[in-house]
Nucleic acid binder design. Sequence first.
RNA 1: GGGCGAUUAGCUCAGUUGGUAGAGCAACUCAUUUACACUGAGAAGGUCAGGGGUUCGAGUCCCUUAUCGCCCACCA
Length: 771
Amino acid sequence: MNEDTNTNPNGEISAKTEAFTPNIPSQLLKPYDPTEVEPRVQKQERESGFYNPDVCIKEGITKSDAPVYSIILPPPNVTGTLHMGHALGFTTQDIVIRYKRMQGFRTLWIPGTDHAAIATQSMVEKNIQKAEGLNRHDLGREELLKRVGDFAQQSRDTIVSQLQTLGASVDWSREAFTLDEERNFAVKTVFKKMYDDGLIFKKNRVINWDPKGQTTISDDEIVYEDRKAKFYTFKYSKDFPIAISTTRPETKLGDVAVAVNPDDARYKEYVGKEYEMDFCGAPIKIKIVADYAAEMDFGTGAVGITPAHSMTDYEIAQRHNLPMIQVIDEKARMMVGGPEVLGKKVVEARDAVVLWLKESDLLIEETEIDQRISTAERTGGIVEPLPKLQWFVAVNKPFTLEHSEIKGIESGSETTLKEIMQKAVSGEQVEMLPEHFLKTYFNWIDNLNDWCISRQIWYGHRIPVWYKGEEIYCGIEAPTGADASEWIQDEDTLDTWFSSGLWSFSTMGWPTKASDPKSDFSIYHPTNLLVTGHDIIFFWVARMILMTGYVLGTIPFHKVLFTGMVRDMKGRKFSKTLGNGIDPIEIAHKFGMDAGRMSLIFGTAPGTDSKIDENKIKGYKHFANKIWNVTRFILTATEGLNGTANNPLVNFTDADLALIEKRNEIFKSISTNIDNLKIHIVAEDLYNYTWKEFADIILEDSKEIFADVDNLSAESIAKKKSRAKFLLETLGLIVKTLHPFMPHVTQEIWSLLPAELKTRELLMTEKWPTF
RNA sequence: GGGCGAUUAGCUCAGUUGGUAGAGCAACUCAUUUACACUGAGAAGGUCAGGGGUUCGAGUCCCUUAUCGCCCACCA
């Protein structure tokens, strides 16, 4: 909008536009311009302070004893910026929170960002490597942390402005970050509690090592890639009685056993025997063991056991008390063997071992098979299982839960973290939508193993454990006293999901204000709703249930709504590597954010994937303009009939009463549908009524009534007044109910409507209509 | 191998507890400078993947087959 145009809705009409309809606000005379209106409305709303429930109470918008409705925003990673997938979830939350706020609930929606440990550090490291040719060790811990911190700050700033562009009515005064001081205190507090309860322990185990990121990762951070691989069948030596098969001959330098099925007649006679030999320059000692893990039908029916470099082999080795010999180091290089393999990368060593097998006449067969290889989610590095001393959370270990509000677990009774996760959901205290995700959830829990939480990176919550020789100290603060300087803190940091798991209560003042009845924690926890993508059901949803159950004996949220993935037109996921992400800000510039919001919601059933299509967004830009023009028409047509709206002295005609009945029938279902999170249905109902019924039929029909300007008969005037009242009131109704979906255009129209329709200037604080 | 989901108009998808098949976009015909061309009216388009069952009645519930997608898990 240019400077010459009058932007004051209630002000005087500027000279430039007075020629036509002088009493209609000038901005209405032009097509709706979201790029001008949206930032202005966002600013107005934000500066009002009403995103903050405390302000709402202070200003009398919300009663202090009103029922509570709270949502925590799933904190976006500071690795980058928001795309339309985020926008779908955030719009859904905004719709619900605006609706609840208008209904008079004491609503709180807390924003924040996630430090995303590995993801962020590896991204910054990559950038530095590219620009300066330096690695993290060249920079040192302090300098790297500073660089990563700066990057995170920038990213956070972008995310904030994107959220504002989206029109998200989050309470900025409560913004949190998973790695800020308050959250760090919560993390240390929980860590210590778990440590003292014996649920956090340190152990030398085979873990998933990411040679690229130089850190361990959890089972859930692995993604699989299908590849073709060579499958080699061979014998360790000429004298060895059994042939085995493998895709990774280089690991066989670390073999300690061959497992055969106890029922396998072919190998029965060898079980228990031991063989010693040289394998490609490494002395190995192989024991034949019987174990049902070996399948008779697969390969030769015999498995070479490499306890140090395979999870399953490690488990088999445990059962048979076999030693563990590490032959691959953290850089994925061979630690043993003859000169042809020693020090070589695993891939090169593989070729060398195969060549040695051929030359030694031990290779029996070489075939091609499909194989799934494990890669690290964040760096893409091929995961190398290897033994390492790491921190774990024990999910199956019994402990006493002092306080429990979880159905099926008594206060003071013995339970496990796994049981907490199961009972919180099976007792229906936590609901999931769509319901079928319950099966996914339980299926995951059934197969759950201990959670490896330590990471060998610097960006994150440092493990609150100190060492002095053989002594170990776990505490919230470093040990003090005369020998304070002799204590050395653990170098590792925690899995980012450890801190995310506390998010529902760490954002609300826990633990420092937990006992204060006026704290956010006392008022707003547990939260009512979590809206998130189903891709993080294990990472985050399950971990929040675990942490909240363990720490508080309660649930983090009553309901989880899983949104589907928003994909591009080719059906691909948005990803940084594909570069197909769409910035919501781009949509706002092109079509307006209201249109973007509607296009995400409309026709998208909860949990189902959707495709983003500019044509679709354009349709809702047209819709915004349609309501705009409807407003113009009504204000023009009812000019001179001021004061009809909400005026009890104006009686409705029978025709208009019929229109009201039909209208109310449609609007009646809206609240229930939003309560049941069927917001896509509501969007459709509002769209259809507004356009197909109100504009196309009722407005067209009204033209005839108002066209009859010279007829001053009582009957004609009564008819005009009745229709004017109906149109104005219905417009008010449409604008109110549409506000959660399209907050900007509705607010702008609201500011133009006659005073008798309004009780407040800001639509977001208006009372939600009831029927 | 186990689990989950999808299959509805040319395309993208809705379709609440079973009760006469819906929208947007595209395409077709017509109208119109109108509150709005970011428009209106109209027509066209479907054996609801196939088969079987329950029911007075099935897109919806049950069984089965096929195709596609996703998740989990041991294939050494």
